[in-house]
Nucleic acid binder design. Structure first.
Length: 855
RNA sequence: GCUCCCGUAGCCCAAUUGGCAGAGGCGGGCGACUUAAAAUCGCCGAAGUCUGAGUUCGAAUCUCAGCGGGAGCACCA
């Protein structure tokens, strides 16, 4: 076989041979690189279509194929619509699996990682993913992670990267810390082991400074991001508004501030609760009696022994200890006993609360358990009016009477609803909303409180005690001083693994690389490098900018290029990243905006979450024995059939059960379409107008409909329309005007052009067989002929009382009166109406008449 | 426990957004071609839209209640 053999056009009489077609075009595209995006003089409008880049763990699987198929359909569509489309790919190639594989095999993580990348890249090419192969990046390349370090230094300069000691999530299995986002149900997201707490000094990114903007800017994504993802982000950020209230503590100089969303119920506070694992609790206990100290110590030990799972169990009984200390309610001077209880969290709000058992279920549960007083201050039976009412004695008396029926203690249910304030001095008679406003005014006037908001979102912990990541570019001197590595000395390159023990042991393996760790400042001061590496989510928080020029060794990205291409017009990826990656990327984008590098504040204008590929109702896994290997599917059916099957299976957001779909059916359809392309006998310059009108109508309806369908991601419907059209062409050839008819050529050309989104190899081959040398990918969709979209006649349905009784063939421009007259006269209508009285006739010309009767 | 999404032929899914329930595919059946099979081609069933109420001239589509499935949140003051 000579090298020319594989580039011989397939014989028209030959059977559809997908393997041969695929091989031939893959080789050609390798030469012509049709999807490079590097011509600066290109004046076409731009689109940036981005797939979430993969982690290189083994070869691509069915899920990858699905995601990349959808992203590719969109990229090819916009290209076809005349856009200059940037559609890059890279690898998120730092991270634990590579390190674990290296430990297991006693090799370097680089070997495993880069071998997997090569394998995945080959599979992507086989899938005909139309990536710009000149822009490939790998986050584990020093050429990439040097800019992670640059980014870190920018955040450090802005005070957005800082080090602090605190209780962190610790995975005992992976021997590393985890961000809050990586703890799911108290377990390590990666290895599913129970997470414990450990006190460590670690680096954080101050994402909480951006909490308001991260929340508020979600509004501009409404409609172009899945609402599910927006909701998850909102929940995660978790903004609560209310007030901070200062309580004087007996025997303590400083007041204690608590956060509450219900400052209106301040008069109903009957005790205070502090988190047992807070410094405040320890201090308050230490200043109390020996008995209290002992009880507290016992309680604290008990609390710390329980794991996250137990702690989060909402059905569990309240526990706590009385500290024998008292706080003074700033609005009424009441003495409130202070308790330590683990239903109050140390790291939310101020780690202390005012307890209002009448109106908060958790406080009520606690009060009932420990027999603490309960005072109702909101009459939840009273009607609520918006305006500030004028209060009369009678109203207050009446309110007190109504309130007597309110019995949270008896019912065990807190009164959380709105109502009218009672037992609350100056707030009496007000609605909840008005009371909140008023009490904040009062507190602010007295200097004992203020409006406040709190977030569930915590700062982003980025230190990892592992080898295979970006070194943190900070030097530490003996006095504990921090010295950022100067920009011109970047990158801080990972040392070789030679002689390093990568085995997890709680401290970074880099600490053992003595020659690497020890260095000096320009003035000769000995310093040590920070031995930790960055969370890999740092890598992916800005990679979409690096694609603008992944080979630029002078800057992370060119702001001018960012202005041209970014933000990403369409992002495609799994919902698994709904919180973590997307939140971090949004944060870093805002930081870069504030630093003046970007002119936009949201990185991803539109987001498509594809579903999963499952098998027989459940996620594929080796242990379940239902694993379907992508490479097997590609071998068996060819890339085009696999891609088409993904597109046709249903809406892209839905899961695809591979047991429910038919790649052989897809292949059959492709063969049908391909065969027709060889039967056409007319030439490319045939006069379209001479073609069969019925087939032309169908073709042009599809031309009119397809763009809207693709843009709404209704790929399955487009494929169905293509099948219909192919069926119609078949019929036209076999039992109609025949293969020489102009409409046949026109229709199959449209099929080829649209099919190029889903089945690029087959479509390219069809296009060639139809006599074209150009790439079908750039052929573009013709404009539909408006005259072919207007029907000569339409079927009007005639209903009587909503039931179809007759049909009429009428002109599409028929008047309502005329249609009504025709409809009333139809045999079906006359029969159905009989001698009943016609009470109403609804006419929706030209499609429908409904005659409503009575009698 | 709270919130959101979804229930349409045996199966996967459409339905111009309130106007004839069916486009497409899978599977199944029948037939043509074949010595036969595969492939190919042609033809054909099948549901009244999870259940119940309501709004409407008209409901798969809107409202309420329930059943079933999925997702998110859940001691966050």
């Amino acid at each position: 076989m000579t090298e020319h053999d594989s580039d011989t056009p397939t014989d028209e009489a030959a059977e559809y041979d997908i393997a041969r077609i695929q091989e031939r075009w893959m080789a050609r595209w390798e030469q012509t690189r049709p999807f490079a995006t590097d011509d600066p003089s290109d004046t076409r409008p731009r689109k940036y279509v981005l797939d979430m880049f993969p982690y290189p763990s083994g070869d691509l699987h069915m899920g990858h194929a699905e995601a990349y198929t959808f992203g590719d359909i969109i990229a090819r569509y916009w290209r076809q619509q005349g856009f200059n489309v940037l559609h890059p790919i890279g690898w998120d190639s730092f991270g634990l699996p590579a390190e674990n594989a290296a430990i297991k095999r006693g090799t370097d993580p680089r070997e495993w990682t880069y071998a997997n990348i090569d394998q995945q890249l080959a599979s992507m090419k086989r899938l005909a993913a139309s990536f710009d192969w000149d822009r490939v990046l790998r986050t584990s390349d020093p050429e990439y992670y040097t800019w992670n370090q640059w980014l870190f230094l920018k955040l450090y300069e802005k005070g957005l990267a800082y080090r602090k000691a605190s209780w962190v999530n610790w995975c005992p299995h992976d021997q590393t810390v985890l961000a809050n986002e990586q703890v799911v149900d108290g377990r390590c997201e990666r290895c599913d082991n129970l997470v414990t707490k450990k006190k460590l000094t670690q680096w954080y990114f101050k994402i909480t400074d951006y909490a308001d903007r991260l929340l508020d800017d979600l509004n501009q994504l409404e409609g172009s991001w899945p609402s599910k993802v927006i909701t998850m982000q909102r929940n995660w950020i978790g903004r609560s508004t209310g007030a901070d209230v200062d309580f004087v503590i007996e025997g303590r100089d400083e007041p204690v501030t608590v956060f509450t969303t219900r400052p209106d119920t301040l008069f109903g506070a009957t005790f205070m609760v502090v988190a047992p694992d807070s410094e405040l609790a320890a201090e308050l206990a230490a200043g109390s009696t020996p008995e209290v100290q002992q009880a507290f110590a016992g309680y604290l030990a008990e609390v710390q022994r329980s794991n996250e799972i137990e702690r989060q169990d909402t059905t569990r009984e309240k526990t706590g200890v009385f500290l024998d200390r008292f706080a003074i309610n700033p609005v009424n001077g009441e003495r409130l006993p202070i308790w330590a209880a683990d239903y109050v969290l140390a790291d939310y709000g101020h780690g202390a609360i005012m307890a209002v058992p009448a109106h908060d279920q958790r406080d009520l549960d606690f009060a009932l358990k420990f027999d603490l007083p309960v005072r109702v201050v909101v009459d939840t039976n009273a009607p609520v009016t918006g305006a500030l009412p004028v209060i009369t004695e009678e109203m207050l008396d009446a309110g007190a009477a109504e309130a007597a029926e309110l019995d949270p203690v008896g019912t065990g249910t807190a009164l959380s609803g709105d109502g009218r304030m009672i037992n609350s001095g100056p707030l009496d008679g007000l609605s909840k909303a008005n009371a909140i406003t008023r009490v904040i005014e009062l507190l602010e006037g007295a200097g004992t409180g203020r409006a406040a908001k709190t977030f569930r979102l915590r700062d982003w912990l980025i230190s990892r005690q592992r080898y295979w990541g970006t070194p943190i570019p900070i030097l530490h001197d003996a006095e504990g001083g921090e010295h950022p590595v100067p920009e011109d000395q970047l990158p801080v390159v990972l040392p070789p693994t030679d002689g390093l023990d990568l085995q997890p042991k709680g401290t970074s393996p880099l600490g053992a690389a003595v020659d690497w760790v020890s260095t000096t400042l320009p003035d000769g001061t000995p310093v040590t490098r920070d031995p930790d590496t960055m969370d890999t989510f740092v890598d992916s928080s800005w990679y979409f900018l690096r694609f603008l020029d992944p080979n630029d060794d002078t800057q992370a990205f060119d702001p001018a290029e960012a202005e041209k291409w970014a933000p990403v017009d369409q992002y495609v990826g799994g919902v698994t990243h709904a919180i973590l990656h997307l939140l971090y990327a949004r944060f870093i984008t805002k930081v870069l905006f504030d630093l003046g590098y970007l002119t936009f504040t949201e990185p991803f204008t539109a987001l498509l979450n594809q579903g999963m590929v499952i098998m027989n109702g459940s996620a594929m896994s080796k242990s379940r024995g239902n694993l379907v290997r992508l490479s097997d599917q590609l071998d068996e059916h060819g890339s085009d059939a696999v891609r088409l099957t993904m597109a046709f299976a249903g809406p892209p957001e839905d899961d695809i059960d591979w047991a429910d779909v038919s790649p052989t059916g897809s292949a059959k359809f492709l063969a049908r379409a391909w065969r027709i392309s060889g039967e056409v006998t007319s030439s490319p310059d045939v006069e379209w107008k001479t073609g069969d009108v019925a087939l032309r109508r169908q073709t042009h309806h599809l031309l009119a409909e397809a763009p809207g369908l693709v843009e709404a991601f209704k790929f399955n419907v487009v494929v169905a329309r293509l099948m219909e059209l192919v069926n119609a062409i078949r019929k036209t050839i076999d039992t109609g005007p025949g293969a020489g008819d102009a409409a046949v050529r026109e229709a199959i050309e449209v099929v080829a052009v649209l099919l190029s989104l889903f089945a690029p190899y087959t479509a390219a081959d069809m296009w060639e067989r139809l006599g074209y040398e150009s790439e079908v990918a750039f052929a573009g969709l013709r404009k539909p002929d408006a005259t072919l979209l207007v029907e000569d006649s339409v079927t009007a349905i005639v209903q009587v009382d909503g039931k179809v009784r007759d049909k009429l063939e009428v002109s599409p421009t028929i008047s309502a009166d005329e249609l009504e007259a025709l409809a009333r006269a139809t045999a079906g209508a006359v029969r159905a109406v009989g001698d009943r009285e016609i009470v109403n006739v609804i006419v929706r010309a030209p499609r429908l008449v409904n005659i409503a009767t009575r009698g």
